[in-house]
């Protein structure tokens, strides 16, 4: 009986800690693809696609990354957490490639709602939105 209480106490504490941790971080971001896209992606697959180092999904189909407009919270979180760069570093990275014929940065398509709409219509696209906005029109392949 006593051990039961203790277990409950521990479980409740852990739940409380994780809630506080989640609330103190930014709101979660989801990486999304078209619902018919069969691929599962690792974080490094996503990083490579968004840094222009990989142009296809694991099954060989074309992968085209799309960015939210600059300054959005989801974009800063994505660049920081997934691409592991700050906003200036990612610009300098693309400046090196863009002006030397080695690559073109992802197209900026607007707000999260624009990204979701485009991704829901095109199996080649991959984007990111606030996790709370994800619904049946897109498939979440990674969340952070």
């Amino acid at each position: 009986m006593k051990s039961m209480t203790l277990k409950r106490f521990i479980a409740a504490s852990l739940a409380g800690i994780s809630l506080v941790a989640a609330a103190s971080a930014f709101s979660a971001v989801a990486v999304i693809v078209h619902p018919n896209n069969p691929n599962s992606l690792t974080q490094s697959d996503i990083t490579r696609i968004f840094l222009g180092k990989k142009k296809s999904f694991p099954d060989g189909a074309d992968a085209i990354p799309v960015d939210q407009k600059e300054g959005s919270a989801a974009r800063s979180a994505f660049v920081g957490t997934i691409l592991k760069k700050n906003d200036q570093q990612i610009k300098a990275y693309w400046a090196q490639l863009l002006f030397t014929g080695k690559g073109t940065p992802p197209k900026e398509v607007g707000a999260g709602s624009d990204v979701k709409k485009l991704v829901s219509e095109n199996p080649a696209l991959i984007g990111y939105i606030d996790a709370a906005d994800a619904d049946g029109s897109v498939k979440v392949v990674h969340q952070f």
């Binding site: 610009k91 300098a92 400046a95 090196q96 002006f99 030397t100």
Partner: peptide, 10 residues
């Protein structure tokens, strides 16, 4: 060398 012109990049 190939992005010497692009000062922002370094």
């Amino acid at each position: 060398s190939d992005f010497l012109d692009v000062g922002y990049a370094y």
